[in-house]
Write a protein that binds this DNA or RNA. Sequence first.
DNA 1: GAAAAGATTAAA
DNA 2: TTAATCTTTTCC
Length: 277
Amino acid sequence: MKRTYRFKRVTKPKKSIQPDDSIHTSEKSITIGARPKSQSQPQPGILSISNPTLSFNELKILPPDLFQMDALDLVLKILPPDFFQIDALDLAPCLLGKLLRRDDVILRITEVEAYRPNDSACHGRFGRTPRTAPVFGPGGHAYVYLCYGLHTMLNVVADKEEVGAAVLVRSCEPVCGLETIQQRRGQITEKPVLLTGPGKVCQALGISTEWSNHRLYTPGGLELLDGPEPEKILVGPRVGIQYALPDDVNAPWRFAIAGSPWISAPKKTLTLPSSEI
DNA sequence: GAAAAGATTAAA
DNA sequence: TTAATCTTTTCC
């Protein structure tokens, strides 16, 4: 398994980190900006990272070069298998804010839907079939399928083996690798239209159905990483399941980060839970 | 073996 | 609003 470190910013960066700033990495720190070798302490205007935690905002302003380096392993943490082995209804909101990484692309999950056992909208409702077998595997695997013969959908398998539950990733916000995302999407834009919709997320990650059953908790390929927790969460009924039983159609099992523009249509059906109003 | 439908998207 | 597109499941 990949080693994980916790990092902390020990000096304030300049107003913004420039892409051509030099980067120094070592076992215990990442330093960005010109820093004379003779000086043991970071100078003002230099970002130096050493134990513990790099914040999400800091992550976003790091220069692209850093993300092609092994140093990235020092600041991003892969979530362990245990994280996924819970009810899909509990896992779904927990996935908001988490990061999906494949090669130089990192996406922050902004919208999800839970699919569960005894749920007439869940692909597991027909039992274990060649396509849905991963859904019945242990939590933490990917379940990827083709929808309408055109679009691939990425699910995170939830709960214990044999349960048959998963969480659909419906929308994301770009964190790293914008150019690669735009290239794969065939659309040069930074607006939400780039990543709001489950088919778009898969396209941006370059994921096909061959990725179904891939382990998200092992380094390499497609990974699910820890990320900043959202402040408030919106809930609402799931999208595009009119064929299901009324109780399941109405179940509020769709979740999204409140205030985020990176949410797919329809948005009006999402609200703060009654307990927070 | 045939037919219907689908956890969608982009364009008109 | 609709076409595009194809795998899975179900029905005969």
